[in-house]
């Protein structure tokens, strides 16, 4: 908790305490803590002197600003048309099997979350995914297994 508070203070020092600092601060918190906890949002509200509801309302608008706990690695499988056509479902099933979780869930060790996302701009290499910020395209069962195994070893 104190770490979160420290983090947000330093982020506010860096990005300022005006309303337009809200997005960069929230993004940085999600990068470091994988989601925005109620404590984090309250602290951000304090630093920027805006209502907690405002922080929450803004955060929930953006699909990458999670307000529920996520794993260290968030896997987002693109579900938009060309990735859909080229087998996103197989990719999801493979990951589900590997991590023993269902879509939308987080592994017990809090290492992975598996989610759908809308178009990530790799339509020519569908199916494609993002693991945190890193994109992977042209996936098939074999390739995604390799990638996930590598993350599991991390």
């Amino acid at each position: 908790m104190t770490e979160t508070i420290q983090l947000i203070k330093s982020l506010a020092d860096k990005h300022g305490r005006k309303r337009d600092a809200l997005m960069p601060i929230m993004q940085a918190v999600v990068e470091s803590e994988s989601y925005l906890s109620d404590i984090a949002m309250t602290e951000i509200a304090k630093e920027l002197d805006i209502a907690t509801a405002e922080v929450y309302g803004t955060a929930t608008f953006y699909s990458f600003l999670d307000t529920v706990p996520r794993g260290k690695y968030v896997i987002r499988v693109c579900k938009t048309i060309t990735c859909d056509m080229h087998g996103k479902k197989r990719i999801v099933e493979t990951i589900e099997k590997l991590l023993k979780i269902k879509l939308g869930e987080t592994t017990q060790d809090k290492k992975f979350s598996l989610l759908y996302t809308n178009c990530i701009g790799w339509c020519h290499q569908g199916p494609a995914i993002l693991i945190n910020t890193t994109p992977y395209g042209d996936l098939d069962e074999e390739k995604i297994t390799e990638i996930i195994m590598e993350y599991m070893r991390k």
């Binding site: 109620d38 209502a51 907690t52 929930t60 608008f61």
Partner: peptide, 13 residues
């Protein structure tokens, strides 16, 4: 809070 079909009027959390 939220967007699209899920958009609604909420309190904090």
């Amino acid at each position: 809070s939220h967007k699209g079909k899920d958009m609604k009027i909420s309190t904090f959390m």
